[in-house]
């Protein structure tokens, strides 16, 4: 039962640059379970973003394995149902992982509605009217129902990030990856984005969130990872991490950010 609930099993994940001179990830082992809201914190350059980006292979790891839905996605070839080795179709797996970026990465030449319906129409072959209906419904839920025809340039940062979140949700992912989703926002817009993420967490979405928002980590996260120098130094519940930090690096980090 316990293994069945594991959505992503990361084992000894490594990412080296320059023949191992730079170890962005130095042996990370962690399990993401269904329904987890896992918050990754740590100082700049600690490898948090590299870790998150490795999960859907935006970065190709140097070593270790990532088992997602029972398949090791770091391998070039994987066995299919009949046990025959076939080429791994990474696009298939990425469809099941939504990703939200620090700089939103909306497509500037498309309207909000087109941004949202492109992938469902092209990848899932969803009929256009159905995709648009679904997009409008999601936009309504994040309070942007009237901006469907707008272009990204016309939206504020907070609005753009809310669109980016629902754009990823259009593909009905099993897990959502957030890479510092509020770091590029003006302070007054951080709240509106965190509210959407909080709502998503309450609906039971599995989430991995890299963030500097300690308040969000404490309030919404059910597990917190602390990373430094490419290593996972401490993990636990928000109370463990924020009230009873063990590792000196974590204590030092918290004394600076809290």
């Amino acid at each position: 039962m316990a293994t069945k609930d594991n959505l992503i099993q990361v084992t000894d994940l490594k990412k080296y640059y320059n023949r191992g001179a730079i170890k962005a990830l130095d042996g990370i082992t962690v399990n993401v379970q269904k329904g987890d809201v896992m918050v990754v914190i740590g100082p700049s350059g600690s490898g948090k973003s590299t870790f998150l980006r490795s999960l859907n292979l935006m970065e190709m790891p140097t070593g270790g394995s990532i088992i997602f839905d029972g398949v090791d996605i770091t391998k070039k070839k994987v066995p299919n149902e009949k046990g025959k080795m076939v080429k791994l179709d990474i696009d298939k797996h990425r469809q099941k992982m939504g990703m939200v970026f620090q700089h939103f990465n909306l497509f500037p030449h498309m309207t909000i509605l087109e941004n949202m319906t492109l992938a469902p129409i092209k990848v899932h072959h969803m009929p256009k009217d159905q995709a648009e209906k679904k997009a409008l419904e999601l936009l309504g839920r994040v309070g942007l129902g009237d901006r469907a025809g707008a272009y990204p340039i016309q939206l504020s940062g907070g609005q753009k990030q809310r669109v980016a979140i629902v754009r990823a949700l259009m593909m009905e992912p099993e897990v959502m990856l957030f890479d510092e989703p509020t770091s590029a926002l003006d302070p007054e817009m951080v709240g509106e984005v965190l509210d959407v993420m909080k709502e998503l967490a309450q609906e039971g979405m599995t989430m991995v969130v890299v963030t500097h928002e300690m308040g969000f980590a404490r309030e919404v996260g059910n597990r917190v990872l602390f990373m430094a120098d490419g290593k996972l130094l401490e993990q636990g519940t928000p109370d463990d991490i924020f009230l009873h930090p063990q590792h000196p690096r974590l204590q030092e980090f918290l004394s600076k950010v809290l």
């Binding site: 859907n56 935006m58 696009d91 298939k92 990425r94 469809q95 992982m97 939504g98 990703m99 970026f101 700089h103 990465n105 909306l106 497509f107 492109l118 992938a119 092209k122 990848v123 980016a164 754009r167 990823a168 593909m171």
Partner: peptide
């Protein structure tokens, strides 16, 4: 970032 966003949505 445009490529990353697109690929993360599962587009080839």
């Amino acid at each position: 970032g445009q490529t990353e966003a697109s690929r993360s949505l599962g587009l080839t």
